[in-house]
């Protein structure tokens, strides 16, 4: 299933990555290479094998439901380019 350059542009847009024409063509070649590998993998007969979501064995460890984390807002806010009244400020977004 070869991708086209418009697929690449769409994926870049979904990830909010700006991409030039030259980069689009370059990325297209790389992605199609990956697709070829996946096609190869898909030709293997996996009948009767349980799908694996993670390469590690075992299950998720759980945490007791206790509120033990008391965030230091001022410290966290120091990472923000802009803030006001305890809020992070971002370019105006209204969907």
């Amino acid at each position: 299933m070869p991708l086209t350059s418009s697929d690449v542009k769409r994926i870049a847009h979904l990830a909010r990555i700006e991409i030039t024409e030259a980069e689009t063509e370059h990325t297209l070649g790389q992605l199609n290479g990956i697709f070829k590998l996946i096609e190869q993998l898909q030709s293997v007969d996996t009948t009767g094998i349980e799908p694996m979501s993670h390469p590690l064995g075992g299950g998720q460890r759980l945490r007791e439901d206790v509120a033990i984390d008391h965030p230091d807002r001022d410290a966290i806010m120091k990472n923000a380019p802009a803030s006001q009244d305890g809020l992070f400020l971002v370019p105006r977004v209204i969907e």
């Binding site: 945490r63 033990i68 809020l87």
Partner: peptide, 18 residues
């Protein structure tokens, strides 16, 4: 009492980002 993936409180109405 706490969030699904962190130990921060879920209480409603706290000051922003606390």
């Amino acid at each position: 009492q706490s969030k699904i993936f962190s130990g921060a409180s879920t209480a409603f109405g706290a000051a922003p980002n606390t």
